[in-house]
C-alpha cells in the first residue's frame, strides 16, 4: 500500500521524501487549499523545486486544491489548477464540482483525486464523481467503518485512499460550518478551521483556558494534555454537566488495522498533518514506513512511540470502528 504524506513547507516535504513517502501532498500558499495557515505552504517556485526533488527520489507529488471556489473569484482556483498542471503535479486533489469539471475538461490527461472535503461516503456518490469528472481516486471521509469500505470497494471504479493517522475530523468533512459559525472563517471557504486569528489562550489560576472568537472551547487543569482549539474537540456543558460533546482531544491511528484495510480494498494510506512541523513528518513517516513492513506483533510497539506526538496524547480508531458511533 502507498503511504501518502503531508508537507506544509519545503523542509517538511524533503523530510517526507527522505523518510520514504510514496507520495507527498501539499498546497499553494493561499486559500485554494484547506490548510491555509499563516506561514505555511508553497510558492510556485517552491513547488517546482519540491516536485523535482520528489521525482529524483521516485516519489509522487499531489497538490491539494480542496477548498470551494469563492463566487466571483473562481479565477484564483483555475490559475492554481493551471499552475499545478504545468508544474507536472502527479495528481490534483479537488473538492468543488465546478473546479472538478473545469480540470476534467481543460486537462483531461491530468490525474484527478477526490478530496475528503467532497464528502463522497457511498457507492453512488463515488461513481457519480468517477463518471462526471473521471476521478481516479477517492479519499474516503472519516465516517466509514472498515466493513463499510470492504462493501463499497468492489462496487466503485476508482482507487481508495483512506486516512490512517493524524488529525481526526469528528464531523463529515467538507460539511462543517462550526468554525465559521464562531469565527466567520471555515474550511470550505477559507481553508481554515478554528483559525489562529480567533484563538486566545489565557491562564486562569491553574487552568489553561482556550477561546475561539467569543466562545470558551476548553479549560485544561494543570498537567492535563491539551488539544487544538477546534470546536468538535471542545469541552462543553450539556444539561449542566461538562463533557466533551463530540470527541476528546485525540487523534486518529488505525495503523494497527492495515491488514484489514488492505483486504477491504484500500490502496493508499494517508497521513494527516500539513500544519505539523518537519520533525513530526520525519518521525511519523519513518515510523509508519516501518510499521508497513513489520509483522503485526511489532506494530503496536512502533505505534506507541508516536502517541506522544498526538493531540491530547491519545489516539482513537474513530469511525473505522463501529462502536465509535
Amino acid at each position: 500500500m502507498e503511504l501518502i504524506c503531508p508537507a506544509g513547507t519545503p523542509a517538511a516535504f524533503r523530510e517526507a521524501v527522505d523518510a520514504g513517502a510514496d507520495a507527498v501532498y501539499c498546497g499553494f500558499r493561499d486559500e485554494t487549499n484547506a490548510r491555509s495557515f499563516p506561514g505555511l505552504n508553497f510558492s510556485r517556485q517552491e513547488l517546482r523545486e519540491a516536485i523535482a526533488y520528489a521525482r529524483r527520489h521516485g516519489t509522487q507529488t499531489f497538490v491539494a486544491l480542496n477548498t470551494f471556489m469563492r463566487a466571483g473569484d473562481e479565477e484564483i482556483w483555475y490559475r492554481a489548477a493551471a499552475d499545478a498542471v504545468a508544474l507536472e503535479a502527479d495528481a490534483l486533489i479537488l473538492a468543488d464540482f465546478g473546479l472538478m469539471a473545469h480540470v476534467a475538461e481543460r486537462y483531461p490527461e491530468q490525474r484527478l483525486h477526490v478530496s475528503v472535503q467532497a464528502s463522497a461516503s457511498n457507492v453512488d456518490a463515488i461513481n457519480f464523481l468517477v463518471d462526471a469528472f473521471h476521478a481516479k481516486r477517492i479519499v474516503l471521509p472519516r465516517t466509514l467503518t472498515i466493513a463499510d469500505i470492504a462493501r463499497i470497494a468492489p462496487q466503485i471504479r476508482c482507487e481508495i485512499e483512506a486516512f490512517v493517522f493524524g488529525g481526526l475530523c469528528v464531523m463529515a468533512e467538507g460539511r462543517c460550518s462550526l468554525s465559521s459559525y464562531a469565527t466567520g472563517k471555515s474550511p470550505n471557504m477559507n481553508g481554515v478551521c478554528s483559525p489562529a486569528s480567533h484563538v486566545r489562550y489565557r491562564q486562569e489560576g491553574t487552568e489553561l483556558v482556550s477561546e475561539l472568537g467569543d466562545y470558551t472551547i476548553n479549560r485544561f487543569p494543570a498537567g492535563e494534555a491539551a488539544g487544538y482549539p477546534t470546536l468538535c474537540k471542545g469541552r462543553f456543558d450539556i444539561a449542566d454537566s461538562p463533557a466533551y460533546a463530540f470527541e476528546d482531544p485525540v487523534s486518529l491511528d488505525v495503523m494497527g488495522e492495515i491488514d484489514a484495510l488492505s483486504a477491504a480494498g484500500v490502496s493508499a494510506l494517508k497521513i494527516e498533518g500539513r500544519q505539523r512541523g518537519k520533525a513530526y513528518v520525519a518521525e511519523v513517516v519513518s515510523t509508519l514506513k516501518k510499521v508497513l513492513s513489520a509483522g503485526p506483533e511489532q506494530r503496536t510497539a512502533l505505534l506507541m512511540h508516536l502517541r506522544g506526538l498526538s493531540e491530547g496524547q491519545k489516539t482513537t480508531s474513530g469511525a473505522y470502528e463501529k462502536r465509535w458511533r
Binding site: L208, A222, E224, A225, A226, G227, G277, A279, Y280, Q313
Partner: peptide
C-alpha cells in the same frame, strides 16, 4: 525544527 511545536503544546 527538531521538535514539533504542536506536540510540545499538547504535552503542556
Amino acid at each position: 525544527g527538531r521538535c514539533d511545536a504542536d506536540a510540545l503544546f499538547f504535552s503542556r
